[in-house]
């Protein structure tokens, strides 16, 4: 059954007024979730700004190598995963199951790479003495608290996205899910990418020694 039929043509849908947005309920729901999640990230990034501005002993923990290089690699990986996701959505729409699996597999691999790079960076910082409540440089402890909280929330989104894409890919292969499901999951994945576009400059680039 096509997405159009699932939304408007079956059961009571045929008698209902069509969506003013001309998209499926599933996609609209994802958009509403994205807006709510964007407000959450916006609030914590504003909170980071206030606390940073209000901390006279704020310290800048990052150096070009390895932190910024690692951050740049992570950014390229995440941006590339958005491109592979778009290719996956296009292949799913054209009904090319093999190509869809290949592109979604590449997206999952890039997502896992991002998470591994992030966790490797965290491990290095833990070894240097950083934690949620410790600053080895002797300045405000809020540096570590804010960095790990914000990047942790973003990493949670990445891991959730990888799991969601895996489930959708398996379901699409088994013909349980449609191209619309792949597209909606892609929408979420692009949002995760979009959030990183703010997290990287504000948390990494503004904290270079």
């Amino acid at each position: 059954m096509s997405d159009s039929a699932m939304t408007a043509g079956s059961m009571h849908g045929a008698a209902m007024e069509p969506s003013p947005f001309l998209i499926t309920s599933r996609k609209l729901t994802m958009w509403l979730f994205i807006v709510a999640d964007a407000a959450t990230f916006g609030a914590i990034l504003f909170g980071y700004g206030y606390l940073r501005f209000g901390s006279p002993n704020w310290t800048k923990p990052f150096t070009f190598s390895p932190n910024i290089i690692n951050g740049l690699v992570m950014t390229v990986v995440l941006l590339t995963s958005s491109l592979t996701m778009l290719c996956g959505v296009a292949a799913a729409r054209e009904g090319r199951s093999g190509a869809t699996m290949k592109w979604l597999g590449a997206t999952i691999l890039l997502g896992v790479t991002f998470a591994v790079l992030h966790l490797r960076e965290w491990t290095g910082m833990f070894h240097e003495g950083w934690s949620l409540s410790k600053n080895p440089m002797g300045g405000s402890v809020q540096v570590g608290a804010l960095f790990f909280s914000i990047t942790g929330l973003h990493l949670l989104h990445v891991i959730s996205g990888v799991i969601a894409i895996t489930v959708i890919a398996i379901g699409f292969r088994a013909r349980k899910f449609t191209a619309g499901h792949v597209e909606t999951t892609g929408l979420y994945w692009h949002f995760v990418d979009l959030v990183w576009m703010f997290v990287f400059p504000l948390l990494y680039l503004l904290n270079v020694r």
Partner: peptide, 16 residues
């Protein structure tokens, strides 16, 4: 009127 996913699709070149 039916509900559709999208009206127009950009090409892969645009995405790149």
């Amino acid at each position: 009127m039916t509900t559709t996913e999208t009206a127009t699709e950009p090409t892969l070149r645009v995405y790149v």
